[in-house]
Amino acid sequence: MSNVNVYKQRPDAARAESPLFHAGLDELARKGKSSAGVILREKKLLGHLVIRGDAKDPAFSGGVHSALGLELPVALTLVAKGDTSLQWLGPDEWLLIVPSGQEFEIEQRLRKALDGQHISVVNVSGGQTIVELSGTNARDVLMKSTTYDVHPSNFPVGKAVGSTFAKAGAVIRHTGEDTWELLIRRSFSDYIWLWLQDASAEYGLAVKA
C-alpha cells in the first residue's frame, strides 16, 4: 500500500463547483415548469473511483465484495446498494460511485482488502458528474443523442453502457423505468447541457434540484 500515493483530495469544508454549476440548475429548478416530458437533475459532487483488477481472480472479486458488500458486476451491468453503485466499464475496469466525501475512506478500505494484488484505484470525482434524465420523453432525447439502442428490450433497467453521446461520449445507465443517468466528463458538461436543452425542447424540459 505504501507503493502508491493515496491522497485525500476533497477538502472538509470549501466552496465547490460541480461541472454544471455555471448552468444555475438550482435557480432553474425554482422557476420550474410543472409539466415537462424531460426532467433533468445533476447528481453532483459524488465520490467517483475507478477500480482496476483481474475479474477472473477470486481474490479480487472477493476483496471487492468484502470491502463494499457488492458483487463485482458482469459486463454492461450496474449493481447498487443504497447510495453506492458499482458499474462494469470494461473487462478489468469498474466505476464505484459513493456519497460525497466517502471516497477517501473507501479507497483505503478497498486497498486494504486487495492488499498484495495488482490493482489500481483512482479518484476521478472532480472529473465527471451524473446527469439524471427522467420523464416520459427521456428515451426520445437519448435516441437523438446516442447510436446505442435504448429500447427497453435491449436496454433494461440495470444495464449501463459506454457509447457516443452527440459528438462526445457518455456512460448511459438505466436506473428506473423512465429514469436514466448520464455519466459525463467535466470538460464536456457545458456542451452536453446545451445539447440536452436543445434536444428536449420539443418535449419541454424541467430541472429538478
Binding site: L76, P91, T147, V161
Partner: peptide, 12 residues
C-alpha cells in the same frame, strides 16, 4: 468481444 454485443462504428 468484451462487451458481448453489436455496436455502431462510431464507438470504435
Amino acid at each position: 468481444p468484451h462487451c458481448g454485443e453489436l455496436r455502431s462504428e462510431e464507438e470504435f
